[in-house]
């Protein structure tokens, strides 16, 4: 019935490993977009301009409560309908970047809210302008406590990259499926993909926990 073919596994492993590199690149780019756009979302919600706050808040809620895979399809297919053709990679990065930007904006928001009110008052008393207040005083204090949550989302984004396979980004799952259809063997490719995911995300999660403890020690001291 079932047999695990070692030779076959070894044969497809290099292809899967190079696909794993694509997966990591996709996660990395998506995360960078999310970090920047997420901060923009968070800051826009604090402008004090009611309509802006409301609209951004609703956009964030909408993105957060709907499936990433539908969003990926949406970004990929809607462009051509209006004459804009985006590559699978570009649409994938936009979709996953925006999706996680909405999560990260909540992390930033919590971080910013947690900076004591006295810090804002001290900035005002010292006459620092709003931009300097944010970038020199408030954000540097908001980031360290947010680092663990930010790290968690990096791991999450990595685990969500297989969804990019639906529009043909050649990451791990897409490659495994391609191999499967070529050879009619799915056991080895899908199992290896699972193992590769574990091999990356378990150490990453472990590392993150160590990092979290370090953050608590290092930044706890300066609080």
């Amino acid at each position: 019935m079932l047999e695990w073919k070692w030779a076959y596994s070894l044969e497809i492993l290099p292809r899967l490993l190079s696909a794993a590199v694509n997966t990591l690149i996709a996660a990395g780019i998506g995360y960078l977009i999310a970090l920047v756009v997420g901060l923009v979302f968070a800051l826009l919600q604090r402008t004090g301009v009611r309509p802006v706050t409301f609209i951004v808040r609703e956009i964030v809620e909408f993105i957060r409560s709907t499936p990433l895979v539908v969003q990926i399809f949406f970004v990929f297919y809607v462009g051509p309908q209006f004459g804009i053709r985006l590559s699978p990679w570009a649409s994938g990065m936009i979709a996953i970047g925006l999706h996680y930007a909405s999560y990260l904006s909540e992390v930033y928001r919590a971080g910013l809210d947690n900076v004591p009110k006295g810090q804002w008052e001290a900035c005002k008393a010292l006459n620092l302008n709003p931009v300097k207040t944010y970038f020199r005083i408030i954000i540097p204090q908001a980031i360290p406590p947010s680092l663990p949550a930010m790290g968690n989302y990096l791991i999450s984004i990595f685990k969500d990259t297989p969804m990019l396979s639906v529009i043909g980004v050649a990451e791990l799952v897409h490659t495994a499926t391609t191999i499967g259809t070529e050879t009619y063997r799915y056991v080895e490719p899908y199992t290896l993909v699972g193992l590769i995911f574990l091999a990356i995300s378990l150490p990453a999660a472990f590392g993150l926990r160590r990092f979290e403890a370090w953050v608590a020690r290092y930044f706890g001291m300066t609080k």
Partner: peptide, 28 residues
């Protein structure tokens, strides 16, 4: 023209004593 000293100090925790004092003169 006005400066203030607060009940709870409100020092910037990510800066040294010196940096706390230098921040506004340099930036403002």
């Amino acid at each position: 023209k006005i400066g203030m000293v607060f009940q709870h100090f409100n020092l910037f925790p990510h800066m040294t004593a010196l940096q706390n004092c230098m921040e506004a003169p340099v930036q403002v």
